[in-house]
């Protein structure tokens, strides 16, 4: 990662104060935490006021319409930072449930990591999201492979197809599921880190836009459609 002069501005949304202070202690020196919020309504207010580059968003939150992080994402639609970049969201959760993951991603989050992530990994994930790239945890990658039928051998004929992954995207997802960092993926596939990021972003786009029935079913279960 290239060094960045201004530290990334981050808002921390989580209903557990202990967790918020823990994250603040761990990454407070590496990023600029400009605000915290314990629930949906406070989160929307703080994010609208501070307009950070990245929001660290817990999936399960009290308040709003009862949909947690999804409500925050809808409430902050179209917000931009001072420099004209959209405010980006990185979901942070203890939940493994596929419908939770898919709900926040489809509502617009740029990535999904679990709360057991190390401070260094979290910092680099935040930077990556701030740059407009996507961040996938191994678990999310595994879920994507499953949901798109890639593990079962379904491969898109053309890259633009929304309901299936391309062969290259499948390989990238497989390596991420195996615990590889982006630069390890790049080395493994003999491509640049930038290309890996492009593939991951494209998978994220498919995840958000695809009408593949598994995804739709989960989204319907959460009453998002």
């Amino acid at each position: 990662m290239q060094p960045r002069d201004p530290r990334v501005e981050v808002v921390l949304v989580d209903d557990h104060r202990m967790f918020r202070s823990g994250v603040r202690a761990e990454i407070g020196d590496l990023v600029d935490i400009v605000g915290e919020a314990p629930n949906v309504d406070a989160a929307i207010e703080v994010i609208t006021r501070t307009r950070p580059a990245v929001v660290l968003l817990d999936v399960h939150l009290p308040g709003g319409n009862g949909n947690g992080g999804v409500d925050v994402l809808y409430g902050c639609r179209g917000l931009e930072t001072a420099s004209g970049q959209p405010v980006r969201f990185l979901a942070l959760s203890v939940s493994d449930a596929a419908e939770d993951v898919i709900a926040v991603i489809r509502a617009g989050a740029r990535g999904y990591v679990t709360k057991t992530i190390s401070a260094n990994d979290l910092t680099s994930a935040i930077r990556r999201v701030a740059d407009g790239d996507a961040v996938f945890s191994p678990r999310l990658a595994g879920f994507v492979l499953d949901a798109f039928g890639a593990a079962a051998g379904e491969i898109a004929e053309v890259d633009e197809e929304l309901d299936r992954l391309s062969a290259r995207e499948r390989e990238v997802m497989r390596l991420i599921a195996r615990g590889y960092q982006y630069k390890e993926v790049a080395k493994e596939l003999f491509i640049s880190v930038k290309t890996v990021e492009t593939h991951v972003s494209s998978v994220l786009r498919k995840l958000q836009l695809s009408s593949r029935h598994e995804l739709t079913a989960w989204a319907m279960g959460r009453r998002l459609l």
């Binding site: 191994p138 595994g142 599921a177 195996r178 615990g179």
Partner: peptide, 19 residues
């Protein structure tokens, strides 16, 4: 650590990776 396991079970066989 971190130690990770990825198991892919599909129609073309099973692959497992321990890293």
């Amino acid at each position: 650590p971190p130690v990770s396991v990825y198991v892919e079970i599909g129609p073309s066989g099973v692959e497992a990776f321990v890293r």
